[in-house]
Design a binder for these strands. Structure first.
Lengths: 194, 194
DNA sequence: CAACCATTATACTAATCGGTATACTGTTTG
DNA sequence: CAAACAGTATACCGATTAGTATAATGGTTG
C-alpha cells in the first residue's frame, strides 16, 4: 500500500509506453492508471493533468539526450570523430529508450500551433541549436564548410532520424550498428560514391 | 441543396486540413462535418467510418505522389539529374499540398501495430521501394554505389523529410528552392566538404 | 404521374472522455 | 497522544465521443 514514490515512477514509465504505442490523444487516463495499477486521483496527485504527465516524461528523457549531445559535440577539432560520436549518442539512446524516440517523432511532426508541439518546442529548438552549433564550430576548422552549416545540420538530423525510424519499425539493431555508423559517416562527409 | 458530389469533395478537403492540423485522434467527426457545412449522416453516407475518410484522403494524395516519384525515377542514366527531379517532386508536392505532408509525417512515425499506420503502410512501403529501386538501377551505372543502395535510399529520404519538415514548421519556401536542391544534391553526391 | 433512389437532416444512443469532491488511510511530527 | 500530512480509493461529474434509426427531401426515370 505504501510503496511511496514508486507509483509516480510507474506512471511515468507506463505513460511513456502507452503514449509511444497509441499516441497522446489515443491513450486515455484510465488506460494509464490501470496499467500502472493505481486510480485516477493518484495520477492527478502527482501530475497536474494528462498533458502535465507528458511534459514530465518529455523533460526527463529530452534532458538526458541533450546533455549527451552537448558532450559529444563539445570536442570539434576532429570533425569525423565528432560525427561518429553524435551518431552513436542518437543510436544508443534509441536502442536504450525506443519508446521515447517513438514519442519524440510523433510530437516533432505535429503542427506548430499544437499544444503538444509547443510543450516540446523548447527541447526541439535546443537540439537543433546543438547540431547547428557543432557545424558552425566545425566550419571554423574546415573553411570549405562555411555557408553550409545549417544545410549540414539539417541533413545530418534527417539521416539520423530516418535510420532510427527504420530501426523502430523493424526492430533490427543493425540499422544502428557501428558498421552502419562508419558507412553513414563516410557517405555524409565524402558523398555516396566514396 | 443539390450541389451533389461537392459535399464529398468538401469532406475530403476539410478532413485533410483538420487531420493535418490537430491529428486524427484529436479531430472529432463533429468538427469535420461542421467545417464542411454538412451533418454526420452525410459523412457516413460517403465514408464507412472516420478511419474510412482518412484512408480515402491518404489514397488520393499518396497515389499522386507515388505516380510522380515513379516518373522522376524512371530515367536513371543521369544520376545527378534524377536526384534533382526526385527532390523537386517531393518539394513541389510539399508546397502544393502541405497538409498532406503534415498528415503523412504524423502517420509515418506511428507504431507498427497502429491501425492508422497499417492503413498507410502499403503506400509507405511502395514509396521506399521506388527510392530503393532507383538506387539499385543507379548502382548498375555507377558500380561504386554497389552495396550502398539501401543506405543511400534511406539517407536520401531522411534528408528530404528533414527539409520538408522544416519548411512545414517555418513556412519558408527557400528551404525547398531550386538553389537549396542544387546544394543538397551536391552535398548528397559528393559530401559536405565539396 | 408514380415509383424510385441517392442524398440529407433531426434526434438520439451507449460509451467514454478528462477531471474532481469527498473521505479514508498510514506515517510523521509537535 | 494529537494534529497535520502526503497519498490513495470510491463514486461521481458534465461534456464529448463515434456512430445510427428514422424520416424527409430532391431529382430521375418507368
Amino acid at each position: 500500500m505504501n510503496e511511496n514514490k514508486d507509483n509516480k515512477q510507474e506512471l511515468l514509465k507506463v505513460g511513456l509506453e502507452l503514449f509511444a504505442k497509441k499516441g497522446f490523444d489515443g491513450t486515455s487516463t484510465q488506460e494509464i492508471v490501470d496499467a500502472a495499477g493505481v486510480t485516477k486521483p493518484t495520477m492527478y496527485h502527482y501530475f497536474a493533468s494528462k498533458e502535465g504527465l507528458l511534459r514530465e516524461i518529455l523533460g526527463v528523457h529530452y534532458r538526458e539526450l541533450l546533455r549527451e549531445l552537448r558532450a559529444a559535440s563539445s570536442i570539434c577539432e576532429d570533425i569525423p570523430l565528432s560525427c561518429f560520436r553524435l551518431m552513436r549518442v542518437y543510436f544508443d539512446s534509441a536502442v536504450r529508450t525506443p519508446d521515447f524516440f517513438r514519442l519524440r517523432a510523433g510530437i516533432m511532426h505535429r503542427s506548430g500551433e499544437d499544444a503538444l508541439y509547443t510543450a516540446a518546442e523548447e527541447f526541439i529548438v535546443t537540439e537543433r541549436e546543438i547540431l547547428l552549433g557543432f557545424f558552425e564550430a566545425a566550419a571554423v576548422q574546415a573553411g570549405n564548410l562555411r555557408g553550409k552549416e545549417s544545410l549540414c545540420a539539417l541533413s545530418f538530423e534527417g539521416i539520423i532520424n530516418a535510420h532510427i525510424a527504420t530501426y523502430l519499425h523493424s526492430g533490427d539493431e543493425s540499422f544502428l550498428s557501428d558498421e552502419t555508423v562508419y558507412r553513414l559517416r563516410q557517405q555524409f562527409l565524402y558523398g555516396i560514391y566514396s
